[in-house]
């Protein structure tokens, strides 16, 4: 039961993006390494990027993939009240991808005038929603959370062709303040127009104007951004379409969240 609850909490966290409520994020202690070593991570759900002030993020579905494609297991996992922490050792040269990807459904309906909601796996929909339910709304969701760490030279990144993804003109572990950066957003592997993107630099609690830069991708799925200051940035991208695979769903919501470290010149 407890396991079930945590899975649901995770699902809830991963469906709340900037557009709907709390954001979620992974914060690496380092992203650029010149020798094999440990990196520690915070994972949390909060309104303020990298400020753990709300809830821990479940990392059950976290995958850490090494440059050669092998998997690295997170160790020293600690679940606190405000954040989850874990360590991972990065030994190979190249780029490690940390990601959490989740596909599922979000549903709302009325049962004898009572509003009900469900988030989880598509297969469970029929068990959850009674046949006489009214005002049934079902959306498919596919959310991706990523962070990258490189040892030595960053290596080329591959996309999976599933859900919302991003290809950057400069490797995410190779960013320097003030240099223009072109980001291309892909939905199921194809460039997508109309993806809404927000990029927020961390430490929002130390400034009045917290909100970040907002962009919408063009015909080729691209946006060009400049990150003028060094720091840790939270990128959140959202998109919706009607390419559903679950028969009850009319709409699909896709989200992509990435942590970017920008170094000074």
């Amino acid at each position: 039961m407890k396991r079930m609850m945590t899975v649901l909490a995770m699902a809830a966290a991963m469906t709340t993006t900037a557009a709907y409520g709390h954001g979620y994020w992974l914060l690496p202690s380092s992203t650029v390494l010149s020798a094999p070593q440990f990196v520690t991570f915070d994972a949390a759900v909060s309104n303020d990027p990298f400020h753990f002030n709300h809830r821990p993020l479940q990392i059950d579905e976290l995958q850490i993939v090494a440059p050669d494609g092998s998997k690295v297991e997170p160790i020293n996992i600690g679940k606190g009240e405000l954040r989850t922490t874990f360590d991972a050792k990065f030994e190979q040269k190249g780029t490690y991808r940390l990601s959490m990807y989740r596909e599922g459904v979000r549903a709302s309906w009325k049962e004898a005038d009572q509003a009900k909601r469900f988030m989880g796996k598509a297969e469970e929909l029929s068990k959850r929603i009674p046949a006489d339910a009214k005002e049934v709304k079902v959306s498919e969701i596919a959310n991706r959370l990523e962070a990258y760490v490189s040892v030595g030279s960053p290596s080329k990144l591959k996309t999976s062709g599933r859900g919302l993804e991003m290809v950057a003109s400069t490797h995410p572990n190779d960013l320097v303040a003030g240099e223009p950066l072109t980001l291309q957003f892909l939905v199921d592997g194809a460039p997508a127009k109309g993806v809404e993107i927000e990029i927020v630099r961390g430490q929002t609690r130390y400034r009045d104007q917290k909100s970040g830069q907002k962009f919408t991708s063009g015909q080729d799925g691209k946006v060009t951004v400049t990150l003028p200051e060094a720091g840790m940035y939270w990128l959140d991208a959202d998109f919706s379409d009607d390419k559903v695979s679950v028969k009850q769903a009319k709409e699909r919501s896709l989200a992509y969240v990435l942590t970017l470290e920008v170094l000074p010149q």
Binding site: L33, S34, G152, S153, L263, P264, Q265
Partner: peptide, 22 residues
């Protein structure tokens, strides 16, 4: 001893990014 000192080479930030890392 710590990674034979290479752990902090990245702090030569510009050299590292421009090619030191290769």
């Amino acid at each position: 001893s710590e990674s034979k000192g290479t752990k902090w080479l990245k702090d030569l930030r510009q050299w590292w990014r421009k090619g030191g890392r290769d």
